[in-house]
């Protein structure tokens, strides 16, 4: 049994896997494990690159492996190597949903895409106060992704935010966009983390006002909300703290109509009818 360290980028893993294929190392004889977890056998040195023609596998299979690689799970490379091995030995279906391994691989790909989507949807930026003109930063965010999606999924924000300079810190890694280029660091520098944590504590009354007004208490359906937006993201949004109160008020009977409580408390104003209801409204009726 050969035990290899699983602390790898996809490209580094692919080099190892290619060498192992050349050596004819079957999936049962190789395992990638966390280096900090003591193993019965101890770690083996990485395989030599070896010589000879590279084993041929369908390009779509390699693409699928690359997409599944960010999925964070102990022993993540073992499934990938099994699929690669089977693909290299003529099983061209090994990465497809109809196959047992392929179906597990596709589930990982789906989860990775979904997590990238979560980043794009639920991350919240906090503008950096203008008091420090030296600070090369306009926007700050803290996010806790479940998979290793940050390096590529954060590119979305460079398309979205133009020349604005932003920083995203996570428990494992971080990315800073300086207005032209992104700088990725793993692990996340402690100074970045400190900045982002500070930003996370800030409130946004304007957004929370909008959120509370947009909610229609007559249609209360917290189950649907929970299904769409997992609690781990709600906890990091300014509106998260309003949800229990909105739900409780709606349950207490405010759901007889759709108006927000704060709006109902303001003085109302019915308006005059225009002169004839059939004629088009006179110009200047309501300046």
């Amino acid at each position: 049994m050969r035990i290899l360290s699983d602390a790898l980028t996809f490209d580094a893993w692919r080099d190892q896997a290619r060498a192992l294929l050349r050596q004819g190392a079957a999936p049962e004889t190789v395992s990638w494990e966390a280096p900090d977890r003591p193993s019965l056998f101890g770690l083996s040195p990485p395989p030599d690159a070896g010589e000879g023609p590279a084993p041929r596998v369908p390009a779509a299979l390699v693409a699928a492996l690359r997409q599944a690689a960010p999925y964070r799970v102990a022993g993540r490379w073992n499934l990938l190597y099994r699929v690669l091995w089977r693909g290299a030995h003529g099983e061209r279906q090994a990465h497809l949903p109809g196959d047992r391994d392929g179906s597990a691989l596709q589930r990982r790909i789906k989860a990775v895409r979904r997590e990238a989507h979560h980043l794009h949807a639920f991350l919240r930026f906090q503008p950096v106060a203008d008091d420090d003109p030296q600070r090369p930063l306009d926007l700050l965010a803290w996010f806790e992704p479940a998979h290793d999606i940050l390096p590529w999924a954060s590119e979305h924000f460079a398309d979205r935010l133009g020349r604005r300079r932003w920083l995203i810190a996570t428990p494992l890694d971080g990315v800073w966009y300086d207005g032209e280029h992104s700088h990725y660091h793993a692990p996340c520098p402690e100074s970045w983390r400190a900045l982002a944590r500070e930003a996370r504590r800030q409130d946004d009354p304007l957004w929370r006002t909008y959120y509370r007004s947009l909610f229609n208490p007559a249609r209360l359906n917290p189950t649907a909300m929970q299904g769409h937006m997992p609690a781990r993201f709600r906890a990091h949004t300014p509106e998260g703290r309003d949800i229990p109160g909105l739900v409780a008020d709606a349950r207490r009977g405010a759901r007889r109509h759709g108006q927000a409580a704060a709006v109902g408390a303001l003085p109302g104003k019915a308006l005059r009818a225009p002169k004839s209801p059939d004629a088009p409204p006179p110009p200047g009726a309501l300046k």
Partner: peptide, 17 residues
């Protein structure tokens, strides 16, 4: 400021789902 790629993004959900 701004981008779009054809697909929409739901940024939050209110308690009405």
């Amino acid at each position: 400021l701004g981008n779009s790629n054809g697909t929409g993004i739901c940024h939050s959900y209110t308690p009405d789902g």
